[in-house]
């Protein structure tokens, strides 16, 4: 394994949502490091906090959410900055320029009243990477060509409703790439697309990553995608990272009972399994999360300590971390 040159470090992140029903402790002390040039995956069930974590990186947690504590260290070529301490206008300059997002539903992410050319050009002009609108519109064609949009000269003048789902997602990726960011955060970029288109979009992302030496943070619940795309993977459960390691480590030698369950529940792309099994129980209510390890009510190895104390993420073998009392004493 290459030596990791960190580009982004998330340290001890806590996010709460202040709802009428109570305080939802959505992210509960998440820590991970993303290395330059890798594809880092966040996996987990719906509602486990993947999306919130990814949005929190540039302080985009929607109302009524609040980042309670933590640090997001971004390594620029000139030094480290803590994004959570940056004033809003400086942060705006980083969003979409240094750290770009690709959203889940391309149909909703594009403004229906403007052409995609306009929206790409707008992103460049707002970050002053292209000084004039006129130039930006011409550059938008190149951007569309780079994401393999068919007939980009014509499509640049198309409105979102005139494009297919795949073309819309290509446009969204184009917007994300238009300012040549260093990090792309792709939040389930294919879950709203047909399976055949999914493969095309993932191929595109892989190709772009190699060409432009991007760092990708990929958020997904699709284990097949993880195995195919990722270098390292963090498994999330109920606002915690429960296991973190290379794809090989996590898929071949899963340590955490939740990861094991998760891999038994889906066809494992790296090892053969006979039949699929469900994880018993349901995702806990995060207004009143279970004390200790948040997974203990569903775990078949529960011990006394699991109900009392929260396990910390510890390194079991080089690069392979797990947060479970079975492994740390």
């Amino acid at each position: 394994m290459e030596i990791c040159k960190p580009i982004l470090e998330v340290k001890d992140l806590y996010v709460n949502f202040y709802t009428y029903a109570g305080i939802v402790k959505a992210i509960d002390g998440v820590t991970f490091t993303v290395c330059e040039g890798e594809t880092f995956c966040l996996v987990g069930e719906t509602g486990c906090g993947k999306t919130v974590t990814s949005r929190a990186i540039t302080k985009l947690v929607p109302e009524p959410g609040r980042i309670e504590k933590g640090e997001i260290i971004y390594h620029t070529p000139y030094g480290k900055i803590n994004l959570l301490e940056l004033p809003e206008d400086k942060l705006r300059e980083i969003r979409g320029k240094e750290i770009a997002y690709i959203f889940q539903d391309p149909a909703a992410a594009l403004d229906p009243l403007y052409t995609i050319g306009y929206q790409i050009a707008e992103t460049m002009v707002e970050h002053k990477t292209v000084p004039k609108w006129k130039e930006a519109f011409i550059k938008a064609i190149d951007v569309l060509r780079s994401v393999l949009m068919p007939d980009p000269e014509k499509r640049v003048k198309a409105y979102p409703h005139e494009l297919s789902g795949g073309m819309k997602q290509r446009s969204v990726i184009g917007i994300g790439l238009s300012n040549q960011p260093r990090i792309i955060i792709a939040d389930e970029p294919t879950s709203y697309l047909d399976v055949t288109i999914q493969a095309q979009i993932m191929d595109l992302l892989r190709k772009l990553k190699n060409e432009k030496r991007l760092t990708i943070i990929l958020i997904t619940h699709n284990m097949g995608l993880v195995a195919e795309m990722c270098d390292r993977v963090a498994v999330m459960y109920a606002g915690n990272i429960v296991e973190l390691g290379t794809v090989e480590q996590v898929f071949k030698n899963p340590l955490h009972p939740y990861t094991k369950g998760l891999l038994r529940a889906v066809p494992n792309p790296l090892t053969k399994i006979e039949r699929l099994e469900a994880i018993p129980g349901t995702v806990p209510n995060l207004i009143y999360p279970p004390p200790g390890c948040r997974f203990h009510p569903r775990c078949s190895y529960t011990m006394d300590i699991c109900k009392r104390e929260k396990p910390r993420l510890v390194e079991i073998e080089p690069g392979h971390h797990v947060a479970c009392w079975l492994y740390s004493r």
């Binding site: 985009l60 320029k97 959203f103 403004d111």
Partner: peptide, 14 residues
């Protein structure tokens, strides 16, 4: 509160 405004924030619009 629409998604395209959220995405607008994410792409760093003023």
């Amino acid at each position: 509160n629409a998604d395209y405004i959220e995405f607008g924030k994410a792409r760093g619009l003023r």
